[in-house]
Design a protein around this nucleic acid. Structure first.
Lengths: 151, 151
DNA sequence: GCGAAGCTTCAGAGATCTGCGAAGAGCCGA
DNA sequence: TCGGCTCTTCGCAGATCTCTGAAGCTTCGC
């Protein structure tokens, strides 16, 4: 299989800045740019010139966050992978966990300082903001999901 | 100045998971949890038991993303810092740059593959999603900003 | 049941990053 | 103009992370 094109590596780099590990990002990019429906672990390893161990690790990470799916491979022992529909929305939902953590960290702080101190008011603003996001982001994503099929 | 409380360090840790460097996160946490209106670089260094060099670096990073402000210090030569109002909304706006980068990475890919290939369709979904976010996130943040004073 | 193909796990070498401390620059009052 | 107080920059040592290659495990066909 051919090496990855330049735009693919570029996209992998961007994904890295978005928080993904380097190899994880490259595997994702490979699956985005392939003209096949699915890829096997071996194909990914060859495309990116990386060890099968690295592929295994990356695939594991991507699977747990729902960015790729294992596809049952009839007639072959190898595992096939592909990006599921709506993978990006899934990724975004996952990042919502970070928002929740921020909200709770602020809450914790308030529990210590009290809400009527200087620090307490500062923390309250933080909590309110992330609380807002925590409520509104899922709405935003749902709206995307529901308007997509209608296009 | 007293060492940082446990919840503060906890919050710093959460911020780290959100993408900030360790020292940067700790400095931010210190400014969140202090009962003073502002802190000087020296106070921050002492509170966190870190070198003034580290403070300088962290402060620089936080300032460029708009998470803290330099405050003119009348009667003192030292620099004072504080969290501005709406810092969190600012931070979120900055993360929107990542969204834009994702959108553009996808666009680039499509330019290479063409929109009518298997990969092209996959990339188009990605582009559409991040395009949606790119349009909607600012709206979300503006809504927060405008409803805040009304509370 | 056996052999082979492929996946996973793990230890270690190499690369990368981080924070410190010291040296240097800027600024203010005297 | 000079002296001192801060802030900033930078090289380096220590710590951390990453990817590989090899060994072990599972699964499947024969």
């Amino acid at each position: 299989m051919a090496a990855l094109s330049d735009p693919a590596e570029q996209l992998a780099l961007t994904l890295t800045q978005g928080g993904l590990q380097r190899m994880t990002a490259r595997v994702l990019a490979a699956l985005l740019f392939t003209e096949q429906e699915t890829m096997t672990a071996g194909e990914i390893a060859e495309t990116l010139s990386i060890s099968s161990g690295s592929v295994s690790t990356a695939v594991k990470a991507l699977t747990t966050v729902g960015l790729i799916q294992r596809v049952p491979a009839p007639g072959s022992r190898r595992e096939h992978f592909r990006l599921p529909e709506g993978a990006w929305a899934t990724l975004m939902s996952g990042q919502n966990m970070t928002v929740k953590a921020m909200r709770e960290a602020a809450e914790q702080g308030i529990a210590t300082t009290g809400e009527d101190s200087t620090a307490g008011r500062r923390l309250a603003e933080m909590r309110d903001f992330y609380d807002y996001l925590w409520r509104e982001l899922p709405v935003l994503i749902d709206r995307w999901r529901s308007q997509k099929p209608g296009q």
